[in-house]
């Protein structure tokens, strides 16, 4: 199914994918090369995952693939397979994941556009490293750009979340 060839007219074959997203199976019929970012945004109406650069340089599109943070703009739908995807909409049922709560407590957001990606990166970090040092936070978070400059609050919020 994933080895379809492009023909001379550049028409790209569409394939069917059954994706496990936020605990549910979602079916999409798309070009296998389509990045998960656009599958989520255009086909599944999950707009919390943001487009920022399209080349995995800004982190706005960060989602979890099998529990690990990945940049969905560089993740073709054909590479997902049976791995579970979690987006910001599915991080918690009621918006009460410790990272989300810490974000509210520190009033982190300014424009807010990058924050879904920041939160997904932070949640993934804390899952693998529940008590990160400042350096650990820098290493895990430096792929996420915040144009408004909320970095110091993000770091404080991650530390608050790590205490829960």
């Amino acid at each position: 199914m994933h080895s379809l060839k492009k023909n001379e007219l550049n028409t790209i074959a569409v394939a069917t994918f059954n994706l496990k997203i936020n605990g549910k199976i979602s079916r999409v019929d798309v070009d296998p090369a389509t990045p998960m970012l656009w599958v989520l945004r255009d086909h599944l109406n999950l707009a919390g995952t943001k487009y920022g650069c399209g080349i995995a340089q800004c982190g706005a599109c960060t989602v979890h693939l099998g529990g690990t943070a990945v940049r969905s703009c560089q993740l073709p739908v054909s590479a997902v397979g049976k791995e579970a995807i979690t987006t910001i909409e599915g991080l918690s049922a009621k918006g009460d994941h410790p990272v989300q709560k810490a974000w509210l407590e520190h009033d982190v957001a300014q424009c807010g556009y990058c924050q879904a990606g920041q939160i997904m990166s932070a949640a993934s970090l804390l899952k693998s490293n529940p008590k990160p040092s400042d350096e650990d936070i820098d290493n895990a978070m430096s792929g996420n750009i915040c144009r408004c400059g909320t970095y110091t609050r993000i770091k404080a919020a991650i530390k608050t979340a790590s205490k829960r």
Partner: peptide, 23 residues
């Protein structure tokens, strides 16, 4: 006196607030 951003919860839960999210 400090009051939290009225959009805080919508932002951290990924609600479609932005122009790019409009459809």
């Amino acid at each position: 006196t400090s009051h939290k951003n009225v959009e805080g919860t919508n932002i951290v839960t990924g609600k479609p607030l932005f122009g790019l999210d409009y459809r």
